[in-house]
Simulated assay, not measured.
Amino acid sequence: MSLNGAEEARGFHGRTAEPADRAAEIHAAILLAVVEQRLPPGTKLPEDQLAAHFAVSRTLVRGALQALAGDGVVMLARNRGAAVASPSPQDARDLFDARRVVEAATAARAAERAGPDGWAMLDRLTAEGRAALAEGDRGRAIRLSGEFHVALARLAEQPVLEAFLAELVARSSLVIALYGHRGRSDCGDHDHLGLVAALRDRDAGRAVRLMTEHLREIESDLDLGRARRVPVSLAEALRR
């Protein structure tokens, strides 16, 4: 699963593609809308509406939804269809516990292995996230923040952990959409800049400490006693 699906998720109409490619594009488009919080937890995902929107068969839509269910971002229920997953408070705690373990490992390894090109990539993602916030596009800022974390894992040259973290980051967007309340959960560029500085200094211990503190601060923004649910138009959310 990839968070970098924006380009893949465009251009459904008016071009020919293999069924597997179209299913992957539908998967990418829905995942992007979830990560950017345009499709909040609990949003219904009717096969017929999705098939009409993407101009494909319900069979292709069903395959994409099954893949998203495997990613943990969609729930499939017999006789009730598909909906964007709604993580429980315990799911949220478990998710951040997992992220702390995984990202401590990737931060330490990235401090050893990352070079100038990697540092520049992380700087670019941080700057783009800051620009998104300045433009009032919090959804894009959250996506870019997630891409920063996955990119850092890529610099650690640990592909298994990178793939696992990509799934955890996507599911984190659901948790933040449902329980975030102070706006801190979109990640701060100050924290990201500090992490990049630790990588540049080859200071693995500092990178681990900063990453752990960073994730705890994001988690502290969650109000697990109160879930926010905002109804949206499925067509409008995907059109954007």
Rank of each mutant, 00 (worst) to 15 (best):
L125Y: 08
L122A: 07
A197C: 02
S88L: 13
E162P: 05
R143Y: 00
A92V: 01
G118V: 06
R240S: 10
L68H: 06
R78I: 09
D186Q: 08
E36K: 15
E135I: 00
A107W: 04
R130Q: 14
E219N: 05
L65S: 02
P231R: 00
A177L: 06
P89R: 10
D48C: 02
R143F: 00
G205D: 14
R138L: 13
R22N: 06
A235T: 14
F148T: 03
P116R: 05
A235Q: 12
G70V: 03
H27L: 15
A107K: 02
E236H: 13
A9S: 15
A52L: 12
M121N: 12
S86C: 14
V102L: 15
V169N: 10
A207E: 03
E219D: 08
R15H: 14
F12Q: 07
R10K: 15
G180E: 00
V208Q: 15
S220I: 04
G188W: 04
E112I: 05
E128S: 09
S220Q: 12
L215E: 03
R239F: 08
A82T: 04
G194S: 01
G136M: 09
D48M: 07
P46Y: 05
V61R: 07
C187H: 13
G70S: 02
V74L: 04
E25I: 00
R100H: 04
S86P: 00
A24S: 13
S185R: 01
R58S: 14
V61N: 08
L133H: 07
G72K: 03
F164C: 03
